[in-house]
Design a protein around this nucleic acid. Structure first.
Lengths: 152, 152
DNA sequence: AAAGATTGACACGTCAATCTTA
DNA sequence: TAAGATTGACGTGTCAATCTTT
């Protein structure tokens, strides 16, 4: 009797590499953003999404959906951002439109300032060592993996 | 004047896919392990590494290195595992060999019980939709990315 | 009542300070 | 003193309970 099979050698090797990427990449990006822009990766996304929205305004639920986050998490984060004055909550002006935040122009600058460094980091960490064909391959493989995840 | 360039279209697309993988894969694995074996992904690694070690024993610093974790984090985790009786700390028998844990045989079973489900999850989430050639490609691309990360 | 949003308690990771032992 | 290891405080995420608004 054998133990339920692990992965074959190739798969195991690939899995180790992928696991390391999954482990290290996020923490690098996190560190870079916090250093350069004083915000977490998730906060960066929130502000970026807001700044792209019409009128720089979104409802909490929409923002949560776009940021792949729970409403609860988002609420906590927005509270923090609000405390720093980077975002404003607007209660319903009238009718059922409650706006979670109108980011202050000023502090959208924070997003702006965050962005170049963030872009540089992504390029450096991910794309610098990839050839032109590799980029397409990477996208294809990730898409396949995502299918597997979403199928689950 | 243009804003500092984002990534080109191909890169941006690839980045979105990769970002989604990085976001979703860990939480899926985390959820699966917690459901099936009542432990976190990191706890799983710790127990797995211990169970593979000679005499099921390692020093904290070595374990930390192998698990890519800070000593502090490991210490907290081992404390929790110890509290559940899944691991035992052994103080130096003599000479400078302080052993962090000799996993109880019994509870290594926990690792064993965790493993089949974990393997199945990895296979299902990552490899199911990849062709045989894709596996090598994935490993190669991840390796390239890791080089970029480590170079940083 | 149901959807949208908030809150509080708890679990985990990090950082800095501390303890321990060679 | 320096390396190994632990601890406590703090920040963030999750879950479940709750509040709010229609």
């Amino acid at each position: 009797v054998r133990e339920p099979r692990w992965l074959d050698d190739d798969e195991q090797h690939a899995w180790r590499q992928l696991a390391a990427v999954i482990l290290k990449l996020p923490s690098e990006l996190e560190a870079q953003l916090r250093r350069d822009a004083g915000m977490s990766h998730f906060e960066y996304w929130v502000i970026a999404l807001l700044s792209e929205a019409p009128d720089q305004t979104l409802r909490m639920s929409q923002l949560a959906a776009q940021a792949n986050a729970s409403l609860s998490r988002l609420s906590h984060v927005v509270s923090r951002l609000e405390k720093r004055g980077w975002v404003t909550r607007r209660p319903v002006p009238r009718r059922r439109t409650r706006h979670p935040g109108r980011a202050h122009r000023r502090r959208l600058g924070a997003g702006r300032r965050g962005r170049p460094g963030h872009v540089a980091a992504v390029r450096q960490l991910v794309f610098d060592r990839l050839g032109p064909d590799d980029v397409g391959e990477l996208a294809r493989l990730c898409a396949a993996i995502l299918e597997g995840i979403d199928a689950h």
